Amino acid sequence: TEEVEKIVRELQKRGVSQEEIQRILKRNGIDPRDVEHVVRRLR
């Protein structure tokens, strides 16, 4: 989703690792598959 993408991009800008990003998003109830998808697209 748009929202997830924004969050991921923001965290990446701050130098947060992929694993940490995924952990944060999972904690916020976001589907890990969505996270994977977004992270892969932004690489």
Rank of each mutant, 00 (worst) to 15 (best):
T1A: 09
T1Y: 13
T1N: 08
T1Q: 10
T1W: 12
T1I: 14
T1F: 13
T1P: 10
T1S: 08
T1V: 12
T1E: 08
E2A: 12
E2L: 11
E2N: 09
E2W: 09
E2M: 10
E2K: 11
E2F: 11
E2Q: 10
E2I: 10
E2P: 09
E2V: 09
E3A: 11
E3Y: 12
E3H: 11
E3S: 09
E3V: 10
E3K: 10
E3D: 09
E3C: 14
E3W: 13
V4S: 02
V4C: 14
V4N: 02
V4E: 01
V4R: 01
V4K: 01
V4P: 01
V4M: 07
E5M: 11
E5Y: 12
E5G: 04
E5F: 10
E5K: 04
E5S: 05
E5I: 10
E5Q: 04
E5D: 05
E5V: 10
K6C: 15
K6N: 07
K6R: 12
K6V: 07
K6H: 07
K6Q: 09
K6F: 08
I7H: 04
I7W: 10
I7D: 00
I7R: 05
I7M: 13
I7T: 05
I7E: 03
I7A: 08
I7F: 09
I7K: 04
V8A: 07
V8P: 00
V8Q: 00
V8E: 00
V8G: 01
V8H: 00
V8N: 00
V8I: 12
V8F: 11
V8T: 02
V8C: 13
R9G: 03
R9I: 09
R9E: 04
R9P: 00
R9L: 07
R9A: 06
R9H: 05
R9D: 04
R9F: 03
R9C: 13
E10T: 06
E10S: 07
E10G: 06
E10Y: 06
E10P: 00
E10V: 05
E10R: 06
E10L: 08
E10N: 06
L11V: 00
L11C: 12
L11F: 03
L11Y: 03
L11Q: 01
L11K: 00
L11D: 00
L11R: 00
L11N: 00
L11T: 00
L11W: 02
L11M: 10
L11H: 01
Q12F: 15
Q12P: 00
Q12V: 14
Q12R: 07
Q12H: 13
Q12W: 15
Q12A: 12
Q12Y: 15
Q12L: 15
K13W: 04
K13L: 09
K13T: 07
K13D: 08
K13Y: 06
K13G: 08
K13A: 11
R14F: 08
R14P: 01
R14W: 07
R14D: 05
R14A: 11
R14G: 06
R14Q: 10
R14K: 11
R14H: 09
R14L: 12
R14Y: 06
G15T: 01
G15L: 03
G15Q: 04
G15W: 02
G15E: 02
G15M: 04
G15K: 04
V16H: 12
V16Q: 03
V16T: 06
V16S: 04
V16R: 05
V16M: 12
V16N: 04
V16F: 12
V16K: 08
V16D: 01
V16A: 10
S17D: 07
S17L: 05
S17N: 06
S17A: 06
S17P: 08
S17R: 06
S17K: 04
S17Y: 01
S17Q: 05
S17V: 03
Q18K: 11
Q18E: 13
Q18F: 15
Q18V: 15
Q18M: 15
Q18H: 12
Q18N: 13
Q18I: 15
Q18W: 15
Q18P: 12
E19R: 09
E19T: 07
E19Y: 06
E19I: 08
E19W: 09
E19V: 07
E19M: 07
E20L: 04
E20F: 03
E20M: 09
E20C: 14
E20Y: 05
E20D: 10
E20A: 06
I21W: 06
I21S: 00
I21R: 00
I21V: 03
I21C: 14
I21Q: 00
I21A: 04
I21L: 08
Q22W: 11
Q22I: 15
Q22K: 14
Q22M: 14
Q22D: 08
Q22V: 15
Q22R: 13
Q22G: 09
Q22A: 12
Q22H: 10
R23F: 05
R23Y: 05
R23A: 12
R23W: 04
R23G: 10
R23K: 10
R23I: 11
R23S: 11
R23N: 13
R23D: 14
I24N: 02
I24H: 07
I24L: 09
I24A: 05
I24K: 02
I24G: 00
I24D: 03
I24V: 06
I24Y: 06
I24C: 13
I24R: 06
L25H: 01
L25M: 06
L25Y: 00
L25V: 06
L25T: 06
L25E: 01
L25P: 01
L25F: 00
L25G: 02
L25W: 00
L25K: 02
K26M: 13
K26V: 15
K26F: 11
K26W: 09
K26G: 11
K26S: 13
K26P: 04
K26E: 14
K26Y: 10
R27S: 12
R27D: 14
R27A: 13
R27L: 12
R27P: 04
R27N: 11
N28T: 10
N28S: 12
N28L: 14
N28C: 15
N28M: 14
N28I: 14
N28K: 13
G29E: 03
G29V: 02
G29P: 01
G29I: 02
G29R: 01
G29A: 03
G29L: 03
G29W: 02
G29S: 03
G29Y: 02
G29Q: 03
G29K: 03
I30E: 02
I30C: 13
I30K: 01
I30A: 05
I30W: 13
I30V: 12
I30F: 14
I30Q: 02
D31S: 08
D31Y: 01
D31A: 04
D31I: 01
D31T: 04
D31R: 04
D31W: 02
P32V: 06
P32G: 05
P32Q: 04
P32I: 07
P32R: 03
P32E: 09
P32T: 04
P32A: 08
R33W: 06
R33A: 11
R33G: 07
R33V: 08
R33D: 09
R33S: 10
R33T: 07
R33M: 07
R33Q: 09
R33L: 09
R33Y: 04
R33K: 12
R33N: 08
D34W: 12
D34K: 09
D34R: 07
D34I: 15
D34H: 09
D34Q: 11
D34M: 14
D34Y: 12
V35E: 01
V35F: 07
V35H: 02
V35L: 07
V35M: 04
V35G: 01
V35D: 14
V35T: 02
V35P: 01
V35W: 11
E36W: 04
E36R: 04
E36A: 09
E36C: 08
E36N: 04
E36S: 03
E36Q: 06
E36G: 03
E36I: 06
E36L: 05
E36K: 04
E36Y: 02
E36T: 03
H37S: 13
H37D: 14
H37W: 07
H37Y: 07
H37E: 15
H37P: 02
H37A: 14
H37F: 08
H37L: 12
H37R: 14
V38A: 07
V38E: 01
V38I: 14
V38G: 01
V38N: 01
V38L: 13
V38R: 01
V39C: 15
V39P: 00
V39R: 05
V39D: 08
V39I: 15
V39W: 01
V39K: 08
V39S: 05
V39Y: 02
V39F: 11
V39Q: 03
V39N: 08
V39A: 04
R40H: 08
R40C: 15
R40I: 10
R40V: 09
R40M: 00
R40W: 00
R40N: 13
R40F: 00
R40Y: 00
R40S: 10
R40G: 13
R41Q: 07
R41D: 14
R41T: 02
R41G: 05
R41P: 00
R41W: 03
R41A: 03
L42V: 14
L42T: 13
L42Y: 01
L42F: 00
L42K: 12
L42A: 14
L42S: 13
L42I: 15
L42M: 05
L42N: 13
L42Q: 13
L42H: 12
R43T: 14
R43F: 15
R43L: 15
R43W: 10
R43E: 15
